[in-house]
Simulated assay, not measured.
Amino acid sequence: MQADADVAEASASVFTVERYGRFDEQEWAAVGRVTRQLLALLGAEEALDEAISTQAAVLGRLLNKPGSNEAQPGEEAEAEASDEPDDDPSKAGGTTRSERTVYELPDWLPDQRAELEVRLSASGIDFEWDGDDLLVPAEREDDVDAVFDGIVGAGGDDDSDEERYRALTELFASTGRLAADPADVDRQEAVRDWAGIVGGSPLLGMDEIDWFRIMSKLRTLLGVLDGDGDIDALGDLAQEMHELLRTVV
């Protein structure tokens, strides 16, 4: 499966890490966090291919950051500068800064930035970093906001964590109400609203596998809410989501 290939590629980066240039303490901590999350996902009893692929890609991006594979003493550089145009898909070229939307992310950690890059690339969104500022084409702003929704809470403070804990409790209650009457539009909107707050990295003290399982089920539920509106499927998914949340609230 694709997840196996992603893990293999990330593993190759880990086993050749001595060839890389220096990483600072924050970068090594990020590598450790992502590796731990990846190992936890691989040890899960159920298949979590999407989460595994994402974390493997994040780890690979962290270990292959620009400048991290500089030639070590005694080694010759293998690549020469090219006169050909740079077609790197991560460059939001062809537009000026005024034609792009700027997101200021000074508090984001290396692994959070790497995950953002992975998700932007997967969505086909050009991007460029200008220090701590993320630059994206202005016409893709809505798409970028949707990507951020998947990793909201990155770089958050204690107040935002407290808000997400409260939202998780409210989501538990709202999914129970939706399961009882999946055709109720107000109940559907309540689930959407609370889901938009709880999403992101695992909350402090929460098991990572439980969190990935919850987020996977939540994405499926939201997909049905925004899709064809199959009431039977919506009711069943809301009940499953409710029972899943019961274990953590």
Results as ranks from 00 to 15, higher is better:
2 Q>I: 06
8 A>C: 04
9 E>I: 06
12 A>I: 05
15 F>T: 04
16 T>L: 12
16 T>E: 09
18 E>I: 08
23 F>R: 07
24 D>N: 13
26 Q>M: 09
27 E>K: 02
28 W>G: 01
30 A>Y: 00
33 R>P: 00
34 V>N: 02
35 T>S: 13
35 T>K: 05
37 Q>C: 12
38 L>P: 01
40 A>E: 11
42 L>E: 07
45 E>C: 07
46 E>R: 15
47 A>N: 11
49 D>M: 08
52 I>P: 00
54 T>G: 04
56 A>L: 02
57 A>P: 03
61 R>Q: 11
66 P>V: 09
67 G>I: 06
70 E>A: 13
79 A>S: 09
81 A>W: 13
81 A>H: 10
82 S>M: 06
83 D>W: 10
83 D>P: 06
85 P>N: 03
85 P>D: 02
91 K>M: 15
93 G>L: 13
102 V>F: 01
102 V>I: 11
102 V>S: 03
103 Y>H: 05
107 D>G: 04
108 W>F: 12
108 W>V: 10
108 W>S: 01
111 D>G: 00
113 R>H: 00
114 A>F: 07
116 L>G: 00
119 R>Y: 07
119 R>Q: 14
125 I>N: 01
128 E>Y: 04
128 E>F: 05
129 W>Y: 03
130 D>Q: 07
133 D>P: 00
133 D>G: 01
137 P>T: 10
140 R>G: 01
142 D>I: 10
147 V>L: 04
147 V>K: 04
147 V>T: 07
149 D>W: 08
154 A>Y: 11
158 D>R: 09
159 D>I: 14
162 E>D: 14
163 E>I: 15
165 Y>Q: 12
165 Y>R: 15
167 A>S: 14
172 F>K: 05
176 G>S: 05
177 R>H: 08
177 R>G: 05
178 L>H: 06
178 L>P: 05
183 A>Q: 12
184 D>G: 02
184 D>K: 11
185 V>Y: 08
186 D>W: 10
190 A>T: 14
196 G>Y: 13
199 G>W: 12
200 G>F: 03
201 S>Y: 12
202 P>R: 11
202 P>V: 14
206 M>V: 15
208 E>W: 14
210 D>A: 10
212 F>W: 10
216 S>R: 05
217 K>M: 09
217 K>L: 13
219 R>Y: 05
220 T>W: 07
220 T>Y: 05
222 L>M: 11
227 G>E: 04
228 D>G: 09
232 D>C: 06
235 G>D: 06
238 A>R: 02
242 H>A: 04
243 E>V: 09
244 L>F: 04
245 L>H: 00
247 T>M: 10
